[in-house]
Amino acid sequence: MRYENRQIPEGINVSTEHPLKEFSALLLSLVVLVGAVVVGLSVLAAYAAPLVPFHVEQKIVEQTGSDWLQADPLSVEQQAVKQYLKTLGSALEANMELPEAMTLTVHYSDSELVNAFATLGGHIVIHRGLLREMPHENALAMVMAHEIAHIKYRHPIVASGRGLTVGLALAAVGGFTDSSATGLLINILGSGSMSSFSRGQESEADAEALKALLAHYGHVNGAADLFKALHDRTEPSKLLEFFGTHPADRKRIAAIEQFSLNISQGSTQPFPESVLKAVH
C-alpha cells in the first residue's frame, strides 16, 4: 500500500474575500437596523408619551422622590431672585397658551452650573451660574421661555419615553452579541441618532420662545446674547455636533437673527439691582 499526504489547495477553509468588504456590509446593516429602531420607537414615543395626562406626569415625579427639587432653604436674597424668576416666568407663560391643566414650578438653584433645564412635572430649574452669564433680562427671558416651551410641548416626557424604549431595544439588540465591542458600537450609533431628535426639540423650543419674547417685549433684541457669550468661549467641532443634544450656538444665533428680520426693534431690559447683587 502506498501512503501519501496530498497538498490541500488553499482557500477551502478560509474565505479569500477581503475582510473589509464583509465588514462594511455588516456595519451598514447595523446602522440601518439601529436607525430603524431609534426612528421607529422615537416616533412612537413622540406620539404616545404626550397622551399621558399632565397630572399623572406630576404624580409620577412626586412619587419618585423629587428631593433634588426641594433644594436647600434659600436665603432672603435668593428668595428675591426666585420671586423675580417666578414673576418673569408667569409673564412669559401668559403669552404662550399653555394647556389649562399645566402648571409650572420655577426653581432657583444656588449652584455654579452654567445651566437651566425643564423636567417632568412642569419643573424648571435655573442655576445661579447661568444667571451670572446673563447680560440682561431679555437673554434670561429667552432661556425661560425656551424651557417653558419644552414643558408646553411635553418634551421631557417624550424624551424620557424615548430614552427608555430606545435604550431597552438597543440593549436587546446588543444582547444578541456577547462581544462588548459590538455593544459599544451600537451605543455610539444609538446615542448619535437619539441626539438628533433632541436637537429637533431644542430648535422647536427656541422658535416658540422667540414668539413669546416678541409678545412680551414687542421685539426679540438680546435673545441671542447668551448664546453669543457662550459661543465665544467654546466652539464644538462638527463631530461633537452630531453627539450634541443641543444645536450648535451659531445655528441658534442664526435662527434668532433670521426671526428678528422685519420685526420692530427695541432696547433690552437690565436686571433689577437686587437680583444682580444676589447673583454675583
Binding site: P19, F23, D178
Partner: peptide, 8 residues
C-alpha cells in the same frame, strides 16, 4: 468586532 456583527 466583525464576529460580533455576524452574531447579530
Amino acid at each position: 468586532l466583525a464576529a460580533g456583527l455576524r452574531n447579530i
